[in-house]
């Protein structure tokens, strides 16, 4: 028993396996690609413009902050590019240039860097930026309004969540689950194609870039809460599948909620964090003022993060005070 080897560490020199923030950032962008390509296909060059400008502007804001604060340049880690990319996935293809510039500023500078940069932000930078923009320039996030000139081969050119919110579930009857999964719905450039987001999410989970506990408990939270509401009044509250495959849900599940510094690190806290975000999403959508409550649900879950991380595993051999 005394000779049992528990932990073996060899002495220096060590070899770096190449894994780092840069690698992780580029793989996250790779995972977003299927959903983005569908957005480009559906909305054309304006969508390419929003994504390109957003990624570029986010990197330039990061560089500007680094220079202004006389800090080492951190653009190379790709985190700013990921922030810009995820932000643009939530925007409509017709987003004006100033919204993109303002949004990336809010995300990179206000959401991340003023708290100390990567790893120090208490809230997801993209969620902070989108929440501020929604409250300030809500019209830009009204997809019914932003995409009035688009005519695509979708069952309906009305945003499913606002249709349900205003006119009940029958207003979204035109959409089958298959339509929603295949992205036949208007919405953010990279938020509509459910299948693409799921493929990207599975890749990130398998590679260990995001924690499956958060994403899967988020989905479980949405399905369970939506099921309860839907069972209580099927004509008023959408089905779990509608909630899962519409709005920003899947982007939030795989790209917003699992962000490192704003999410917990232990097993039980991660499950509670994901569940909270999922439950809050459906609560805001069904009985709150907003058609898509995902962004605010993420911020609420972020707020709970330090509290949830108090639930820690017991230290081995630790003898507590009485």
């Amino acid at each position: 028993m005394l000779n049992q080897k528990k932990f073996i560490v060899s002495h220096a020199p060590f070899w770096h396996n190449g894994s780092g923030i840069t690698e992780r950032s580029y793989h996250t962008m790779l995972a977003a690609l299927p959903a983005l390509l569908m957005g480009f296909y559906q909305y054309g060059m304006p969508a390419v413009g929003v994504i390109s400008l957003s990624v570029s502007a986010a990197m330039l804001w990061e560089l500007a902050f680094n220079k202004a604060a006389k800090l080492p340049v951190t653009v190379g880690d790709g985190n700013a590019a990921v922030v810009g990319l995820v932000l643009a996935m939530l925007l409509p293809a017709t987003a004006p240039w100033w919204i993109v510039i303002m949004g990336t500023f809010l995300a990179v500078v206000v959401g991340k860097n003023i708290f100390g940069g990567i790893g120090s932000n208490p809230f997801n930078p993209v969620a902070v930026a989108v929440a501020m923009m929604m409250l300030s320039w809500g019209g830009c996030f009204d997809f019914n309004q932003s995409l009035v000139n688009y005519e695509l081969n979708f069952p309906s050119m009305v945003y499913p969540l606002t249709a349900v919110k205003n006119f009940g579930v029958s207003a979204a009857d035109a959409f089958t689950v298959s339509d929603l999964i295949w992205g036949k719905q208007i919405g953010g450039i990279g938020a509509g194609f459910g299948l693409g987001l799921i493929v990207g999410g599975i890749y990130l989970m398998l590679r260990g870039f995001i924690r499956w506990e958060i994403s899967l408990s988020f989905i479980a939270g949405i399905i369970l809460t939506a099921l309860l509401f839907n069972t209580s009044d099927p004509s008023r509250y959408g089905s779990p599948m509608l909630h899962l495959f519409s709005g920003y849900t899947l982007v939030a599940v795989f790209f917003l909620a699992p962000e490192d510094s704003s999410s917990p690190v232990n097993f039980i806290p991660m499950l509670l964090y994901g569940l909270t975000a999922g439950v809050m999403t459906v609560l805001i959508r069904n009985i709150g003022a907003y058609a898509d409550g995902v962004i605010f649900a993420i911020l609420v879950a972020n707020l709970l993060n330090p509290l949830l991380d108090k639930i820690r595993p017991k230290t081995l051999g630790h003898i507590g005070k009485a």
């Binding site: 054309g44 304006p46 390419v48 413009g49 390109s52 400008l53 990624v55 570029s56 502007a57």
Partner: peptide, 14 residues
């Protein structure tokens, strides 16, 4: 990407 973005907003805008 800045160049692509600016071009998309100017020359290829919807």
């Amino acid at each position: 990407l800045l160049l692509v973005g600016v071009l998309s907003y100017t020359a290829f805008s919807a």
